[in-house]
Amino acid sequence: MKLLIGNRNYSTWSLRPWLVLRHFEIPFEDEVLQLSGAGWRETLAARSPTGKVPVLLDGDLVVPETIAIIEYLADLYPEKPIWPADRADRARARAAAAEMHSAFMGLRSNAPMNLRASHPGKVNLDAVRKDLHRVEVLWGDLLARSGGPYLFGAFTAADAMFAPLATRLRTYDLPVSDVAGRYVEAIYALPAFQDWLAQALQEPWVVDDDEIDVIQGRVAPGTIA
């Protein structure tokens, strides 16, 4: 089984199924497909049916799209608690994952994931205020039900879906409650996340489209080392 992923430093959608695979000790290998540089779009188009990452390859089966990959893994390994065991909690977890997939556009557009960086004060809070409020309510409700440290007690696919958002809160030092802050710390403490982060910090590549200083016009494209 192989997972095609984008640059670890920036690729939010790649991080999500990778965490599920690594945390639940499912044997796999990964391959990084660059999200910048000469011919990168053509390379993605040749390897991925959607022209995007991630893509899971399992024999002749090709599965694009993060949630589809996670659901395939849950079907393939029913003994692994990828989703909560309780039916009601499982429904809540899937609803939260679907909301992450389709919402939080303010945070996703104005605070791109960048694991190597620290950019306090660079995000327009008015542009992300609504999303910050919603994530506080969502996380707060689920953590109050479960007692933490993860949304349903133990780590599940719902946490994998929200891990990239958690990194945005730290990278841009966004104002959150102590409850949300502790959840961010729990994501960073996860051994699988630490593994991904260590590899991200070693990557030499820069994707200008995900660098906030380029997005906001402070530096020219191609000048970030």
Rank of each mutant, 00 (worst) to 15 (best):
M1Q: 12
M1A: 14
I5F: 01
S11W: 02
T12K: 07
W18A: 04
R22T: 15
I26M: 08
L33N: 01
Q34V: 10
Q34H: 12
Q34G: 09
R41D: 07
E42T: 08
R47A: 15
S48P: 08
T50N: 11
T50K: 10
V53M: 14
L61V: 13
T66V: 09
I69H: 08
Y77W: 11
P78R: 01
A88M: 14
R90Y: 08
R90K: 12
A93R: 01
A97M: 10
E99Y: 11
A103D: 15
M105A: 12
S109P: 00
N110K: 04
M113R: 02
N114R: 11
L115D: 06
A117E: 08
A117M: 05
H119P: 04
P120F: 01
P120K: 06
P120G: 01
N124G: 09
A127P: 07
R129T: 09
L132Y: 01
H133V: 14
V137D: 14
W139C: 10
G140Y: 02
D141Q: 14
A144M: 09
R145S: 12
S146N: 07
G147F: 11
Y150T: 02
L151W: 09
A158L: 03
A160Q: 06
P164K: 07
P164G: 02
L165F: 15
T167K: 09
G181W: 05
A186G: 07
L190D: 07
Q199G: 09
Q199W: 11
A200Y: 11
E203I: 08
W205K: 14
D209E: 15
D210V: 13
I212Y: 05
Q216H: 11
A220E: 15
A225W: 08
